[in-house]
Design a protein around this nucleic acid. Structure first.
Lengths: 263, 263
DNA sequence: GCCGATTTGTCCGTATGTATC
DNA sequence: CGATACATACGGACAAATCGG
């Protein structure tokens, strides 16, 4: 029924278990609101230690797939993602998520240039003034519809040989597979802003219908702890959709999970 | 230096360590981009097992406070939350987060009524048609400025004696402290939608300036796995701000953390 | 209400692998 | 190469919550 050593093995046992349980939840093998097998049963099924199944379950919890109840069990609370054309996951690139959803991504590079950060850009992006950067404007389309207007600022030092051709396909593929960079962590801030003339032109927006849009600003770090990218993604408001999952922390000590919103 | 058994003790050792490390990071005791003490040192400092410090560090990772690097150490990548008046954390209620930021929250109940879910409401909210609900319209203000227009649907069965008076203060306080309900998990979807006349009126918006707004729809579950609340929060666009943190998962197997956005 | 079985939560110790320096 | 650091995995022990008899 279940075994490791598959063609694409995620390397670790608990990740295998996590993937397997996730698949079973997504495919309704465990019904919504039902309890998963107890830890003891899972230990037997997967021939592993308690620690290992608990790590897998822990990830399912933070992913919002299940909820654990001391003394009772682990309940499946997964609800499939609604309607919506495609889901842009995590630090996934636009191309990755589009392909994953069986859609046709297209990226048009409107501008490919170099610049060095000045005072104002530095305040906004976090790059020290004087830092050498690539500045790109890219339009992302899905099945022919222009959806996202991206303004990318990449640290030149981390990718001196970046070209327009690479930018037209996938910069992340290039960074990971050619430069062997490891992308680790990203901080994102979402706001609503007024549309600009550029947005109006390229996203074919009508200011009378929508005069503002969703803006996601992201700061992305690699495994050396260097912030190598600042990107502002300006989304068509009528197609924008962001989903997350939150867990209420201990009793009165209000901490947080991975995000919070503010105003 | 560090000890447990404080007045408000979070009950468990790894949470203490998590709190302590978080505090030290936030207070700049560990400099930005510097390495935290190694696991071995932390084991000595906190007199605990390796497992325990690793659990604490694991939470700091998913919270976006640190980044671990095999063979090197644990790097502080925490950046304080930007400007912005106040931060609405997680499943925190409006009142909780406002007080935490030293601001004056006010909630005006515009409508307090009961209804039973019909077909269309059921599709939107997930409540089965026929379910008895409280429907509230509430306006949340901060320091006198109306910021959020809330449409709450609460499961009547879970809180039969809810009153308008309770809704004016804090429903969450009532649920947790009086009814001893445990709020556990919440799924949220963010979109951008056009403003309605109600929004325009109560949030004092001018459609010529902003004709759309940020909308957060949330589905909240208690510890029995029952979805007891569906809420649509309509935010003033010029004050809305949402921050999150994402971690890139294993090499090619693109999974996710706790959220993804889509369009 | 009590008791025992089950189930999850916390904590400890140890061993081994892998990456960095 | 060895020393250091994090990653994975196993084992056991006890606490706390739930449920059924």
């Amino acid at each position: 029924m279940f075994q490791r050593k598959e063609p694409t093995m995620p390397k670790s046992k608990y990740q295998d278990i996590y993937q397997d349980l996730k698949r079973k939840i997504e495919s309704d093998e465990y019904a919504y609101q039902s309890l998963l097998p107890s830890e003891n049963l899972l230990i037997q099924n997967y021939s592993c230690s308690r620690n290992t199944v608990r790590r897998a379950i822990g990830r399912l919890v933070t992913d919002g797939y299940v909820q654990t109840m001391q003394g009772k069990g682990v309940r499946n609370i997964y609800r499939p993602i609604e309607q919506t054309a495609f889901t842009l996951g995590e630090i996934e690139s636009f191309r990755e998520s589009a392909l994953r959803n069986g859609q046709t991504p297209a990226t048009k590079v409107l501008l490919f240039t170099e610049l060095s950060a000045d005072e104002t850009l530095g305040r906004r992006t976090g790059f020290a003034p004087g830092t050498e950067l690539f500045y790109l404007q890219r339009l992302h389309c899905l099945d022919g519809i222009p959806l996202i207007m991206n303004h990318n600022y990449f640290l030149k030092e981390s990718m001196p040989n970046l070209t327009k051709e690479i930018a037209e396909v996938s910069i992340y593929d290039y960074l990971e597979q050619t430069l062997h960079m490891t992308i680790v962590s990203s901080r994102r801030i979402m706001t609503v802003e007024k549309i600009s003339e550029i947005d109006e032109k390229y996203l074919r927006l009508n200011a009378e219908e929508y005069n503002c849009m969703a803006v996601v600003s992201s700061f992305t770090y690699n495994s050396d702890g260097i912030m190598f990218e600042y990107t502002q993604s300006r989304h068509r408001p009528d197609y924008f959709r962001f989903q997350d999952h939150a867990v209420r922390k201990p009793p009165q000590a209000h901490e947080r999970t991975a995000n919070h919103y503010s105003l």
